[in-house]
Protein backbone atom coordinates (compact mmCIF):
# COMPACT_ATOMS: atom_id res chain seq x y z
CA UNK A 1 0.00 0.00 0.00
CA UNK A 2 1.29 3.45 -0.88
CA UNK A 3 1.98 5.79 2.01
CA UNK A 4 -0.25 8.82 2.26
CA UNK A 5 2.11 11.65 3.01
CA UNK A 6 0.48 14.90 4.02
CA UNK A 7 3.17 17.56 4.06
CA UNK A 8 0.65 20.27 4.87
CA UNK A 9 0.19 18.66 8.28
CA UNK A 10 3.61 19.92 9.26
CA UNK A 11 2.16 23.40 9.59
CA UNK A 12 -0.80 24.76 11.45
CA UNK A 13 -2.56 23.15 14.33
CA UNK A 14 -1.61 19.61 13.45
CA UNK A 15 1.93 20.38 12.42
CA UNK A 16 5.34 20.51 13.98
CA UNK A 17 6.13 23.12 16.59
CA UNK A 18 8.01 26.00 15.08
CA UNK A 19 11.76 25.43 15.17
CA UNK A 20 14.24 28.13 16.11
CA UNK A 21 16.08 29.41 13.06
CA UNK A 22 19.10 30.51 15.08
CA UNK A 23 21.39 28.31 17.14
CA UNK A 24 19.78 27.35 20.41
CA UNK A 25 22.64 28.80 22.43
CA UNK A 26 21.59 32.31 21.47
CA UNK A 27 18.06 31.65 22.70
CA UNK A 28 18.92 30.18 26.07
CA UNK A 29 18.52 33.38 27.98
CA UNK A 30 15.09 33.94 26.51
CA UNK A 31 13.35 30.58 26.44
CA UNK A 32 13.47 27.38 28.46
CA UNK A 33 16.03 24.91 27.23
CA UNK A 34 14.22 22.00 25.58
CA UNK A 35 14.81 18.55 27.00
CA UNK A 36 15.48 17.28 23.51
CA UNK A 37 16.00 19.22 20.34
CA UNK A 38 16.49 17.47 17.02
CA UNK A 39 17.13 19.69 14.04
CA UNK A 40 17.14 18.43 10.49
CA UNK A 41 18.69 15.08 11.46
CA UNK A 42 19.51 12.63 8.68
CA UNK A 43 21.15 9.22 8.64
CA UNK A 44 21.98 6.94 5.74
CA UNK A 45 23.46 3.45 5.74
CA UNK A 46 25.43 1.87 2.95
CA UNK A 47 24.19 -1.67 2.43
CA UNK A 48 24.84 -4.65 0.22
CA UNK A 49 27.62 -5.45 -2.21
CA UNK A 50 26.54 -2.63 -4.50
CA UNK A 51 27.01 -0.27 -1.54
CA UNK A 52 23.60 1.22 -2.09
CA UNK A 53 22.77 4.08 0.31
CA UNK A 54 19.57 3.55 2.29
CA UNK A 55 17.98 6.53 4.01
CA UNK A 56 17.03 5.60 7.57
CA UNK A 57 16.26 9.08 8.90
CA UNK A 58 15.58 12.05 6.67
CA UNK A 59 15.54 15.65 7.88
CA UNK A 60 13.78 14.88 11.14
CA UNK A 61 13.14 17.75 13.56
CA UNK A 62 11.56 17.46 17.00
CA UNK A 63 11.39 19.45 20.18
CA UNK A 64 10.51 18.00 23.60
CA UNK A 65 9.95 20.09 26.67
CA UNK A 66 10.98 18.96 30.11
CA UNK A 67 8.55 16.41 31.61
CA UNK A 68 7.01 15.43 28.28
CA UNK A 69 6.21 11.87 27.36
CA UNK A 70 6.59 11.92 23.61
CA UNK A 71 5.54 8.96 21.52
CA UNK A 72 7.11 7.96 18.23
CA UNK A 73 4.97 5.75 16.05
CA UNK A 74 5.76 4.19 12.73
CA UNK A 75 5.77 0.94 10.83
CA UNK A 76 8.66 -1.50 11.03
CA UNK A 77 11.68 0.05 9.35
CA UNK A 78 10.30 3.56 9.59
CA UNK A 79 13.37 4.75 11.53
CA UNK A 80 12.11 4.75 15.14
CA UNK A 81 14.97 2.74 16.60
CA UNK A 82 17.53 4.50 14.42
CA UNK A 83 16.30 7.82 15.81
CA UNK A 84 16.63 6.50 19.37
CA UNK A 85 20.16 5.29 18.59
CA UNK A 86 21.09 8.68 17.13
CA UNK A 87 19.91 10.41 20.31
CA UNK A 88 21.80 7.82 22.39
CA UNK A 89 25.04 8.53 20.54
CA UNK A 90 25.21 4.94 19.28
CA UNK A 91 25.07 6.20 15.71
CA UNK A 92 26.63 9.30 14.23
CA UNK A 93 24.55 11.87 12.40
CA UNK A 94 25.17 12.46 8.70
CA UNK A 95 23.41 15.82 8.86
CA UNK A 96 21.68 17.97 11.42
CA UNK A 97 22.18 18.11 15.14
CA UNK A 98 20.74 16.86 18.40
CA UNK A 99 20.82 18.60 21.75
CA UNK A 100 19.87 17.19 25.13
CA UNK A 101 19.12 19.90 27.68
CA UNK A 102 21.21 22.29 25.62
CA UNK A 103 24.18 19.92 25.29
CA UNK A 104 25.18 19.00 21.77
CA UNK A 105 25.47 15.20 21.55
CA UNK A 106 28.70 15.42 19.57
CA UNK A 107 30.53 18.26 21.32
CA UNK A 108 29.31 17.47 24.86
CA UNK A 109 29.16 13.70 24.51
CA UNK A 110 29.97 12.89 28.14
CA UNK A 111 27.51 15.44 29.54
CA UNK A 112 24.75 14.02 27.36
CA UNK A 113 25.59 10.44 28.32
CA UNK A 114 25.17 11.34 31.99
CA UNK A 115 21.67 12.68 31.29
CA UNK A 116 20.20 9.85 29.24
CA UNK A 117 19.49 6.16 29.45
CA UNK A 118 17.65 3.73 27.29
CA UNK A 119 15.49 0.64 27.44
CA UNK A 120 15.33 -1.33 24.21
CA UNK A 121 12.96 -4.01 23.04
CA UNK A 122 15.47 -6.74 23.86
CA UNK A 123 16.47 -6.84 27.51
CA UNK A 124 20.20 -7.34 27.07
CA UNK A 125 22.07 -8.54 30.14
CA UNK A 126 24.91 -10.78 31.19
CA UNK A 127 22.56 -13.70 31.38
CA UNK A 128 24.54 -15.76 33.89
CA UNK A 129 24.76 -12.84 36.30
CA UNK A 130 21.97 -11.98 38.71
CA UNK A 131 19.79 -8.88 38.35
CA UNK A 132 21.69 -7.29 41.23
CA UNK A 133 25.09 -8.01 39.67
CA UNK A 134 23.92 -6.58 36.36
CA UNK A 135 22.45 -3.49 38.03
CA UNK A 136 25.54 -2.97 40.15
CA UNK A 137 27.70 -2.99 37.03
CA UNK A 138 25.46 -0.47 35.28
CA UNK A 139 25.27 1.79 38.33
CA UNK A 140 29.05 1.88 38.76
CA UNK A 141 29.46 2.93 35.14
CA UNK A 142 27.35 5.97 35.99
CA UNK A 143 29.48 6.78 39.05
CA UNK A 144 27.26 5.32 41.80
CA UNK A 145 28.86 3.57 44.76
CA UNK A 146 27.92 -0.01 45.50
CA UNK A 147 25.94 0.48 48.72
CA UNK A 148 23.71 3.18 47.27
CA UNK A 149 23.27 1.26 44.04
CA UNK A 150 22.13 -1.88 45.86
CA UNK A 151 19.72 0.05 48.09
CA UNK A 152 18.13 1.96 45.21
CA UNK A 153 18.06 -1.09 42.95
CA UNK A 154 16.07 -3.01 45.55
CA UNK A 155 13.62 -0.13 45.88
CA UNK A 156 13.04 0.17 42.14
CA UNK A 157 12.79 -3.58 41.64
CA UNK A 158 10.32 -3.84 44.53
CA UNK A 159 8.17 -1.17 42.91
CA UNK A 160 8.22 -3.22 39.72
CA UNK A 161 7.13 -6.32 41.60
CA UNK A 162 10.49 -8.06 41.87
CA UNK A 163 11.29 -9.04 45.44
CA UNK A 164 14.76 -9.09 46.98
CA UNK A 165 14.76 -12.91 46.90
CA UNK A 166 14.66 -12.83 43.08
CA UNK A 167 17.66 -10.55 42.69
CA UNK A 168 20.45 -13.02 43.34
CA UNK A 169 19.69 -15.82 40.90
CA UNK A 170 20.94 -15.73 37.27
CA UNK A 171 18.81 -13.45 35.16
CA UNK A 172 18.45 -16.19 32.52
CA UNK A 173 16.07 -17.93 34.94
CA UNK A 174 13.63 -15.02 34.78
CA UNK A 175 10.74 -14.67 32.35
CA UNK A 176 10.95 -12.22 29.46
CA UNK A 177 8.61 -9.82 31.28
CA UNK A 178 10.69 -9.91 34.46
CA UNK A 179 13.87 -9.32 32.47
CA UNK A 180 12.29 -6.30 30.82
CA UNK A 181 11.39 -4.91 34.23
CA UNK A 182 15.00 -5.32 35.32
CA UNK A 183 16.01 -3.48 32.14
CA UNK A 184 13.73 -0.62 33.14
CA UNK A 185 15.20 -0.68 36.64
CA UNK A 186 18.70 -0.51 35.13
CA UNK A 187 17.78 2.63 33.23
CA UNK A 188 16.05 4.29 36.18
CA UNK A 189 18.87 3.49 38.59
CA UNK A 190 21.05 6.09 36.91
CA UNK A 191 18.35 8.78 37.34
CA UNK A 192 18.23 9.82 33.68
CA UNK A 193 16.57 13.13 32.93
CA UNK A 194 15.89 11.91 29.41
CA UNK A 195 14.69 8.33 29.21
CA UNK A 196 14.53 6.61 25.83
CA UNK A 197 12.08 3.72 25.81
CA UNK A 198 12.33 1.76 22.57
CA UNK A 199 9.31 -0.54 22.49
CA UNK A 200 9.67 -1.41 26.18
CA UNK A 201 6.45 -3.45 26.33
CA UNK A 202 6.75 -5.39 23.08
CA UNK A 203 6.41 -9.10 23.74
CA UNK A 204 5.21 -8.71 27.32
CA UNK A 205 2.11 -10.42 28.67
CA UNK A 206 -0.84 -8.12 29.48
CA UNK A 207 -0.09 -8.00 33.20
CA UNK A 208 3.60 -7.15 32.72
CA UNK A 209 2.66 -4.62 30.07
CA UNK A 210 0.23 -2.96 32.47
CA UNK A 211 2.84 -2.93 35.24
CA UNK A 212 5.36 -1.22 32.99
CA UNK A 213 2.82 1.30 31.70
CA UNK A 214 1.72 2.17 35.21
CA UNK A 215 5.32 2.59 36.21
CA UNK A 216 5.95 4.96 33.31
CA UNK A 217 2.95 7.01 34.43
CA UNK A 218 4.35 7.11 37.95
CA UNK A 219 7.66 8.30 36.57
CA UNK A 220 5.91 11.22 34.96
CA UNK A 221 4.26 12.10 38.26
CA UNK A 222 7.15 11.55 40.64
CA UNK A 223 10.40 11.95 38.70
CA UNK A 224 11.75 14.87 36.77
CA UNK A 225 12.13 12.73 33.67
CA UNK A 226 11.37 13.42 30.05
CA UNK A 227 10.49 10.29 28.13
CA UNK A 228 10.68 9.34 24.47
CA UNK A 229 8.59 6.25 23.84
CA UNK A 230 8.51 4.23 20.64
CA UNK A 231 5.76 1.67 20.48
CA UNK A 232 3.52 -0.38 18.22
CA UNK A 233 0.82 -0.38 20.87
CA UNK A 234 -1.51 2.48 19.96
CA UNK A 235 -3.54 2.20 23.16
CA UNK A 236 -0.30 2.53 25.09
CA UNK A 237 0.69 5.59 23.09
CA UNK A 238 -2.72 7.17 23.62
CA UNK A 239 -2.60 6.45 27.34
CA UNK A 240 0.93 7.62 28.04
CA UNK A 241 1.98 10.21 25.49
CA UNK A 242 1.32 13.92 25.61
CA UNK A 243 2.41 14.29 22.00
CA UNK A 244 3.01 11.82 19.20
CA UNK A 245 5.29 11.97 16.19
CA UNK A 246 4.59 9.62 13.30
CA UNK A 247 7.53 8.51 11.19
CA UNK A 248 7.22 7.00 7.75
CA UNK A 249 10.25 6.00 5.68
CA UNK A 250 12.47 7.99 8.01
CA UNK A 251 10.48 11.21 7.70
CA UNK A 252 8.16 12.97 10.12
CA UNK A 253 4.71 12.89 8.56
CA UNK A 254 2.71 14.19 11.50
CA UNK A 255 3.08 15.47 15.03
CA UNK A 256 0.47 16.56 17.55
CA UNK A 257 -1.33 15.47 20.68
CA UNK A 258 -3.17 12.12 20.35
CA UNK A 259 -6.51 13.98 20.40
CA UNK A 260 -5.23 16.47 17.84
CA UNK A 261 -4.15 13.73 15.46
CA UNK A 262 -7.43 11.86 15.88
CA UNK A 263 -9.47 15.03 15.29
CA UNK A 264 -7.43 15.86 12.20
CA UNK A 265 -7.92 12.42 10.67
CA UNK A 266 -11.61 12.35 11.67
CA UNK A 267 -12.16 15.59 9.79
CA UNK A 268 -10.43 14.16 6.73
CA UNK A 269 -12.31 10.87 6.84
CA UNK A 270 -15.63 12.50 7.69
CA UNK A 271 -16.29 10.05 10.52
CA UNK A 272 -15.10 9.42 14.08
CA UNK A 273 -11.51 8.18 14.04
CA UNK A 274 -9.19 6.20 16.27
CA UNK A 275 -5.44 6.28 16.68
CA UNK A 276 -5.31 3.24 14.42
CA UNK A 277 -6.98 5.31 11.70
CA UNK A 278 -4.30 7.94 12.30
CA UNK A 279 -1.57 5.31 11.97
CA UNK A 280 -3.07 3.93 8.76
CA UNK A 281 -3.62 7.35 7.28
CA UNK A 282 -0.07 8.50 7.82
CA UNK A 283 1.84 5.28 7.25
CA UNK A 284 -0.35 3.74 4.58
CA UNK A 285 -0.51 0.39 6.39
CA UNK A 286 -2.53 -1.28 9.06
CA UNK A 287 -1.25 -2.70 12.29
CA UNK A 288 -2.05 -6.17 10.92
CA UNK A 289 0.50 -5.57 8.16
CA UNK A 290 3.10 -4.82 10.81
CA UNK A 291 2.23 -7.88 12.85
CA UNK A 292 2.44 -10.08 9.74
CA UNK A 293 5.80 -8.56 8.90
CA UNK A 294 7.01 -9.19 12.45
CA UNK A 295 5.90 -12.82 12.22
CA UNK A 296 7.54 -13.41 8.85
CA UNK A 297 10.76 -11.87 10.20
CA UNK A 298 10.69 -14.25 13.16
CA UNK A 299 10.07 -17.16 10.82
CA UNK A 300 13.19 -16.18 8.90
Amino acid sequence: MTAIVLPELKNGSGGLPSQPTQPVASHRRDIAVPALLIEDASKRFIVGRKRKPVVAISHVSMRLERGDIHGILGANGSGKSTLIRLISGLLTLDEGRVEVFGHDIVRDEMAVKRLINRVSVDAAFFKKLSPMENLLFAARLYGMDGTRAKREALQILARLGIGANRTTRPIEQMSRGMQQKVAIARALLTSPTLLLLDEPTTGLDPRSKLDVQTFIEELRETHDATIVLTTHDLAEAERLCGRITILNDGRVVAEDTPDGLIALVASRLGRPATLEDVFMTFTGRSLDDDVEEDESESDD
Binding site: R114, I116, R118, A124, A138, L141, Y142, R186
Partner: peptide
Protein backbone atom coordinates in the same frame (compact mmCIF):
# COMPACT_ATOMS: atom_id res chain seq x y z
CA UNK B 1 25.26 -0.71 23.20
CA UNK B 2 24.56 -0.13 26.90
CA UNK B 3 28.24 -0.09 27.77
CA UNK B 4 28.99 2.21 24.84
CA UNK B 5 26.24 4.59 26.03
CA UNK B 6 27.66 4.86 29.54
CA UNK B 7 29.46 8.11 30.44
CA UNK B 8 32.92 6.57 30.67
Amino acid sequence: EYTMMAPI
